[in-house]
Amino acid sequence: MSIYHYPLRFTFKITTLANDFVARDALGTPIFYAREKLLALRDQIKIYRDESKSELLYELISNKIIDFQQTFTITNTEGRTIGKVRRKSLRSLWKSTFKLMDAEDNHDFTIEEKNPFVKFWDSLFDGIPILGGLSGYILNPTYHLHDHNGQVLYEIRKEPSFFGRKFMVNKLTSLPIDEERLVLSIALMVLVERYRG
C-alpha cells in the first residue's frame, strides 16, 4: 500500500531567492517542503515537514564541492543513511541520468530522461531571446524511474509554466517499493533539473 496519494505535485516558489518547493499529494495536502541551502560550501538540501521549517525530516548533502560524478547522501534526523543519489555528469550533456543507491551503496534504481532530444532542443533555444523564454511552455522533459529490469516505477513530468515551477510525479506500479527513498531521490532530481525546459 502506498504511503502517498498520487499523483504528487511539486510547485516551486518564485517569491524567494532559494531553490525551494512544496510537495503536495493528490488531495492537495502538503507532504514536505524542500529547500536548497544557499551559499554552502557543498550542495545541501533540507527536507522539512512544512514551510515553517520547524521540523527537519531529512538532509541531502553532496560529497564533493565540484559537480563531477556528484553523489548526495540522504540521511534522516537520527543521522541514519536512507540512500544515495549519484548524478552522472558526463552523460548529462545528452541525457540526464541519476543512479539511485541504497544505504549499502548498491545501485538498484535509475532516473533517466525519457527523450534526450528535448534536452538538445532546450539547450539550443535557451540562449535565443523570446524563444528561450517560451521553452517552459513547449519543451517539458519527462523522466522515468526504473529498476534494473527496466520496469518503470515512476514517471516525473515537468508541466508547462514560466520559471519552471511545476512537476507532477506519478507512481506506475503496485509492487512494494521503498517509496520514502525513491520520492526523496525524485525531489533531488527535480531541484537539479528545475531550470530545464
Rank of each mutant, 00 (worst) to 15 (best):
S2I: 03
Y4R: 05
H5G: 01
Y6K: 03
Y6W: 10
Y6I: 07
L8S: 03
T11V: 14
K13V: 01
A18G: 03
V22T: 14
A23V: 13
R24D: 01
A26Y: 12
L27S: 13
G28C: 11
I31N: 04
Y33I: 05
Y33E: 08
A34E: 07
R35T: 13
L39K: 11
R42V: 10
D43C: 00
I45A: 06
K46M: 11
R49D: 12
D50Y: 10
E51W: 06
E51F: 03
S52Q: 14
N63M: 03
K64C: 02
I66A: 11
D67F: 09
I74G: 01
I74H: 00
E78W: 06
G79Q: 11
G79V: 11
R80S: 13
I82S: 05
G83Y: 06
R87S: 02
R87G: 01
S89P: 01
S89D: 03
S92Q: 10
L93K: 09
W94P: 00
T97K: 14
D102S: 04
D102L: 05
T110N: 01
E112P: 00
V118H: 04
V118A: 03
F125T: 15
G133A: 12
L134M: 15
G136Y: 09
Y137H: 15
Y137T: 05
N140I: 04
N140Y: 08
T142L: 03
L145M: 12
H146W: 01
H148R: 14
N149Q: 15
G150Q: 11
Q151I: 13
Q151H: 14
E155C: 11
E155R: 15
R157L: 06
S161C: 07
F162H: 06
R165A: 11
R165Y: 00
F167I: 08
F167L: 06
N170I: 00
L172W: 10
I177N: 02
E179C: 02
E180R: 14
L182A: 09
A187L: 04
V190D: 01
V190M: 04
V190Y: 02
L191Q: 11
L191E: 08
Y195T: 08
